[in-house]
Design a protein around this nucleic acid. Structure first.
Lengths: 269, 269
DNA sequence: GTATCTATCTCGACC
DNA sequence: GGTCGAGGTAGATAC
């Protein structure tokens, strides 16, 4: 909760269990207003319309609304939400009397005693125009969470680490290699490491932190082609792919195009 | 909750607010045991070690453990979890007396009155070996959720829809185009649509549901190269990229390699 | 299991 | 804003 404003209270969580839909609506609206993280669990349908479109019939799901405008709908399976909306969206919540949902006519669940038929969460995005609609027939829990989170994730073992490693010890590529630039621009994009071998030939290095397939080889090939044209028609440009390993198809592609491979891990481990 | 076993009770949510760490541990262990979806909100540190490694210092975060073994750690920002574990992991929860965390020596929060220093959630994966450790100094809420979710997401507007559209109406590509196969195998991978134009020339079609960059052009190029070699040395193989639009760099690449582009959306909208 | 490719990819960086 | 490439990408599918 990076909303560490001076007015930040101590961290807290407020929960309603089996609330009437109108009470749930009020708690959610209040949570959005106070820029809390809001969760709702209950029986709902989900509709998405935008770049693609989707429909999800009734089931019990967990919905999270973040103060930055993100929305997540999770089932009990999978790491990914079944539906979502990215940060920057406008969240809205309201009760809907008109939206009777077939198959749920006999309102025997909780939250149906206030005359409303459904609690609707709406999340809107522009550019592209996209809309996420979660319609709850029954709400089992609503929570709002506030807190502080000043720290950021420190991640290591990335491609950036691999680059650092190679720049600090260029001989890991091959004896006599001299790095001259990183992120060197070419018409085909920026080259990871640009340098010279012991014979003075231009070397293009493409780094990948993990085992690579044909895509990485094509990428390296585009860089080599672009640099060959950029320098001289008959320039001798070597292309070297650096990664822990390559797939068979990628290895064949490397051979076909006269490219090389050096096995190296992001970390010394 | 697709765990729709015959013994499935009615959907329910159980919540503890500001529990002692040992009570939290018991509720979480019970939730994991009953294959519920478990959430924990509180002040925690997060460590990940595996393909890469990461450290996240103390802050208030929302953790979700799914019955399929997935784990998600969410801050109040971003659509993506700050740390996670994929489905298939083993979840474990225990209280830790030894793990005193610097900067939190004066235990003034809730849940510190039972003599334990931290509540630890551990999520283990094998192949690759990866470990996620969430250590709570303070727990503000624990919830366990159960329910039923029989329905699956129905998504449209995908690349598959684009393929269907083109197969039903091949003239959308160009008059006289005849599709002969989908997913035709080549040494470079499977071609989306393989067919013939009105002059009997082989046509390779690569589909993308959205605006494409250089990667898609390289992919198409690999297919055309592979098929040219596969058929005859002097075979005339056309490569056509079908997508809503292309970037400038991709367009230039298309021209360089004699490939073509047809603008088409996944849906008629 | 490995390999390949799609994705409402998300995210950040750079122009 | 668009473009580009990385990602602990995840997820599906074919081998």
């Amino acid at each position: 909760m990076t909303s560490g404003t001076p007015t930040q209270q101590s961290p807290h969580a407020v929960t309603l269990e089996r609330p009437a839909l109108e009470d749930a609506r009020e708690a959610i609206a209040d949570g959005i207003e106070r820029e809390a993280l809001v969760t709702v669990f209950g029986r709902c349908t989900v509709d998405y319309e935008g770049r693609a479109s989707s429909v999800l019939e009734a089931g019990d799901r967990h919905v999270m609304l973040k103060p930055d405008g993100a929305a997540l709908v999770h089932t009990d399976e999978g790491q990914q939400p079944v539906n979502w909306q990215p940060p920057g969206c406008e969240h809205d919540v309201y009760c809907d009397r008109a939206g009777a949902v077939d198959g749920d006519e006999d309102n025997d669940g909780a939250g149906d005693d206030d005359g409303t038929d459904a609690l609707v969460l709406e999340s809107l995005r522009s550019n592209p125009d996209e809309r996420l609609l979660v319609r709850f027939q029954r709400v089992l829990q609503v929570s709002t969470f506030s807190g502080t989170d000043e720290n950021e994730l420190a991640l290591s073992g990335t491609e950036e680490d691999l680059r650092q490693r190679l720049l600090e010890e260029p001989a890991l590529l091959e004896p006599g290699f001299t790095p001259l630039a990183t992120e060197r621009a070419t018409p085909a994009g920026a080259v990871d490491i640009y340098g010279e071998d012991s014979a003075g030939r231009t070397v293009v290095v493409e780094l990948k932190r993990r085992r690579v397939g044909p895509d990485a080889v094509s990428q390296l090939r585009r860089y080599v082609d672009a640099l060959t044209r950029d320098l001289h028609a008959d320039a001798d440009v070597r292309g070297i792919l650096v990664a822990p390993s390559v797939t068979d198809r990628a290895e064949r592609l490397l051979g076909e195009h006269g490219l090389e491979f050096v096995s190296l891990e992001p970390t010394d481990g």
